[in-house]
């Protein structure tokens, strides 16, 4: 489960952590991705596992468009840019929920049959559900890919440079908006992957994103902003802490363990475990 939290968080790690843009609509991005996956299944009978790249591609476009149409302007604010970002994306989240309810109806959906759904590998008494297993593998691949991308390609360096000093990069001919639109697209695309995997074993309705959003924020912050590896580690820690807390306390308090660990970590290391900013 921890790796799945990581998978949901990886897109946020890019947008929130690397570009330093607050995105309160992250859960809603996930919701849209899950719906896409559901509709591809319902109308074209494409298994979520196959449609994952499609969903990711669609979400890439969606993320880039959202950036160009809305977030770009939120970043232009000269004063209290943080608040403007928080509330612009928060308003966006509400609109997305409303639109989802309008077009998709509030009915609970779920994908009844899929290649992975409900299958389990049992190994020496330990059960490993296949969707989670695939999710974990995809998660590791996504993190490795993003890590490579940020640290080994020109674009990754451009992204980092743009965040640190937009004025300077403009001088060397990098268009800030293009870089960030690409970054948002990538972030949303990663959420798309997560959504497609989640759709296999989770229910889907307009408010579904809310359950995951806070966990994703905590995951990214726990690992530290600006660190891809941090978000990965954060996901694993969150998953482990949740499992351990559920054994020691009443399960309804299991999130308390996650939150407490976050507070403990940032009190000791105010920049998260591997944060650089």
């Amino acid at each position: 489960m921890g790796l799945l939290y990581g998978l949901i968080a990886v897109g946020l790690a890019l947008i929130f952590g690397l570009m330093d843009v607050t995105n309160f609509a992250h859960g809603e991005f996930l919701m849209i991705a899950m719906y896409l996956s559901f509709f591809l299944f319902a109308f074209f009978a494409i298994d979520p596992l196959l449609s994952a790249p499609l969903v990711a591609a669609a979400m890439f476009v969606f993320g880039a468009v959202v950036y160009l149409l809305i977030v770009r302007f939120a970043m232009r604010a000269k004063t209290n840019a943080g608040m403007v970002q928080i509330f612009t994306t928060f308003g966006l989240a509400i609109v997305m929920r409303g639109l989802a309810q309008f077009f998709f109806t509030p009915d609970y959906r779920s994908i009844p049959q899929s290649w992975l759904g409900g299958k389990t590998i049992s190994f020496a008494g330990i059960f490993l559900p296949e969707p989670q297993l695939v999710g974990a593998l995809v998660s590791i691949a996504a993190f490795a890919g993003l890590y490579f991308f940020i640290h080994r390609t020109d674009f990754g360096r451009a992204l980092e440079a743009t965040r640190e000093d937009p004025g300077a990069v403009a001088l060397v001919g990098i268009d800030k908006n293009r870089v960030f639109a690409f970054g948002w697209g990538l972030g949303a695309g990663l959420v798309g992957l997560a959504g497609a995997i989640m759709a296999v074993f989770f229910y889907i309705y307009p408010d579904v994103g809310a359950s995951f959003a806070l966990i994703a924020y905590v995951t990214v912050a726990l690992g530290g902003f600006g660190s891809v590896f941090g978000a990965f580690a954060g996901g694993i820690i969150v998953g482990l802490v949740e499992a351990v807390t559920a054994l020691m306390l009443p399960p309804s308090l299991k999130s308390v363990g996650i939150y407490a660990v976050y507070l403990l970590v940032v009190f000791i290391r105010p920049r998260g475990l591997f944060g650089s900013m």
């Binding site: 809305i70 939120a74 509330f87 612009t88 308003g91 509400i94 609109v95 409303g98």
Partner: peptide
């Protein structure tokens, strides 16, 4: 929700 959210976006921007 759509109206409410859109207004928040519009004013913040």
């Amino acid at each position: 929700l759509i109206v409410y959210g859109a207004l928040i976006v519009a004013i913040s921007l």
